[in-house]
């Protein structure tokens, strides 16, 4: 197991070292904007997914405990989900503005 982890460590080091083998000039320039855009969208999506999951779980639990409170919980859940979705959209728009 330890040998396998060493192997993966060395392979990952080679992955990062690949640009070092590239020829000089424009082709070797790393597009950091694209890389950070991908990471930021991934982080935003993950955060929004977690937030939506937590909101839905809490609403489902509340509805199961107290079905009479359905109108209030449903309204809060709809608004919450719509606003959480818009956060991911903000990130997408910023990415488009920066990458374009």
């Amino acid at each position: 197991m330890r040998k396998l982890s060493y192997l993966f460590l060395i392979l990952s080091a080679f992955c990062f070292a690949v640009p070092a083998f590239a020829q000089g000039g424009e082709a070797g320039v790393t597009n950091w904007v694209a890389i950070t855009a991908g990471f930021s969208m991934a982080i935003a999506s993950a955060g929004c997914g977690i937030a939506q999951a937590k909101a839905t779980a809490a609403a489902a639990e509340g509805l199961a405990r107290n079905p009479a409170a359905r109108p209030g919980i449903q309204l809060a859940l709809i608004l919450g989900l719509a606003l959480i979705e818009s956060l991911a959209l903000y990130t997408l728009v910023i990415i488009f503005a920066k990458v374009k």
Binding site: T56, A60, L63, A64, P67, R70, I73, Q74, L77, I78, L81, A82, E85
Partner: peptide
């Protein structure tokens, strides 16, 4: 349309939980 479907989805979920 997205908001309408979101509302329908949440209503369906609430129907299923409250068995209404």
């Amino acid at each position: 349309l997205n908001f309408h479907w979101l509302k329908r989805g949440v209503s369906g979920l609430a129907d299923r939980i409250t068995k209404a």
